[in-house]
Amino acid sequence: MALSLEDVHRIAYLARIAVQDAEARQVLGQLQGIFGLIEEMQAVDTAGIAPMAHAQDVTQRLREDRVAETDQHPLFQSVAPQVEAGLYLVPKVIE
């Protein structure tokens, strides 16, 4: 299946990465090459094969319901781009 320029713009938007048209065209060429490689997978008959999501066949461990964290927000917020009154500031969110 051939990737289109429109696809590049759509996924770049979903991924929140700004791309200009010229850049998108260049990326399209590279992605088409990579998808050429990826398409090799389609030749394999995988009917009846269970997908493998994890390297080990183990199940989720559960944590005890205990408060184990203390307030570190001054430290965490010392590396934040913009904070005020303990809040992270972002451009206005419109609902």
Binding site: R66, D71, Q72, F76, G86
Partner: peptide, 17 residues
């Protein structure tokens, strides 16, 4: 995570790493 869930805390004091 092990952060507390109590309601009404000051902003981000119950937001751990």
């Amino acid at each position: 995570s092990g952060a507390a869930t109590a309601f009404g805390a000051a902003p981000n004091v119950q937001a751990c790493a």
